[in-house]
Design a binder for these strands. Structure first.
Lengths: 196, 196
DNA sequence: TACATGGTAGAATGATCGTTCTACACCTGC
DNA sequence: GCAGGTGTAGAACGATCATTCTACCATGTA
């Protein structure tokens, strides 16, 4: 099993190649050969670094890209003059990223999380942990901004739901309108939550 | 090409079998043999009814289940004493359905829509049309409840984003909490939109 | 009766799949 | 120098994939 805190350069190349392909076309449609090619390594290396096979690689991708996305979003939110403007910036940034990537770079794990939710328990648990990390991080910020914990959590879930739902619609419509609409609503929900 | 307004019994069995499997495990992970088996028909029948192959079947599944979901949600919303309570009922119903189906029956087309968004243009367009139909239908209701069109549309997009995002989190966490949180927020957004 | 149409039935095809296996190279420690 | 560990390299394997093809049946029409 790959070290849980660090990851060696080749394994990292495999994870990033896989993450890109999984995000763009999903888990089942991505073959290990394509990942190996994208990573510039032989297919045997995948099994060397991830002896558990495709599922283990999938879990690692979920863990690492889920944490990376969380860190990115936190950085954006925390750079705002306050929580509300930070969230506004995060949605705007998401829209810009999605548009600049030809509507491919949306949520790093949503596509495969839905694919495997009913069929691959280790990966489902990994995705649950990633999403829970996001929800907890945002809950903490909303709470710190002066909201009771229960409402903060519900608001965090809603804000992230808005983001995920809007990603889906943006990719389907090849338009950033959903992300802008959802961003406006996210701001309104958070404003209401911290003004109570 | 299958008739666009009616569909014969065998083709219908194929579509429903496919829809179930696509929803549960996604498009790429579902083989035509499994669909044929589920429909109780030989694999040749799939090509007979859908000469365009798997893509054509995918488009048909998106069209039919997208329209069916819209009709279901509209029925629930319109049965409420007013728009706000109708939307509340819709989210509660979604939560009950997801829970009763072992967290498999969420959005009929989200999983495959994300899988194919960057790789299969005919199907992406079909998913865009389905989602657009949902957005337009809800926009109309919010507008009829006394909201300007621009805000009505943005609110409709947000409500549906909340639903889709919450479906994702509910499937990942095997919990209905996200749908209840999103439902409360949807109600708040719609209330605010029609009181302006 | 012959032909056309619509449909079920399932084998055949070449390609891709995840996985296992064998081979070799390099580095480190004893 | 040898053994063990780490890693690249890619062929082999059995299974599954989407698609095409052949065969047969039933019905309706000329």
């Amino acid at each position: 099993m790959t070290d849980t805190t660090t990851i060696n350069p080749s394994a990292e190349r495999i994870v990033f190649a896989a993450a890109e392909l999984f995000r763009r076309q999903g888990f089942a449609a991505t073959g290990l050969k394509a990942i190996a090619t994208e990573a510039g390594l032989p297919i045997g290396s995948i099994y060397h670094h991830f002896p558990g096979g495709k599922t283990e690689l999938g879990e690692t991708v979920i863990r690492i890209t889920g944490a990376g996305f969380q860190e990115l979003v936190e950085t954006i939110i925390d750079a705002g003059t306050n929580l509300v403007s930070g969230i506004d910036d995060a949605f705007a940034g998401a829209a810009a990223t999605v548009e600049a990537s030809d509507y491919a770079d949306a949520c790093p794990i949503a596509t495969l999380a839905l694919e495997i939710a009913s069929t691959n328990e280790p990966m489902r648990q990994a995705s649950d942990r990633a999403f829970t990390g996001w929800i907890d991080a945002l809950t903490g910020r909303i709470e710190a901004a002066g909201c009771d914990r229960k409402t903060a959590r519900a608001t965090a879930i809603s804000v992230l739901s808005l983001l995920e739902g809007a990603f889906l619609f943006s990719r389907a419509s090849r338009s950033v309108e959903p992300l802008h609409a959802a961003g406006t609503s996210a701001v309104a929900l958070v404003r209401a939550a911290i003004s109570d």
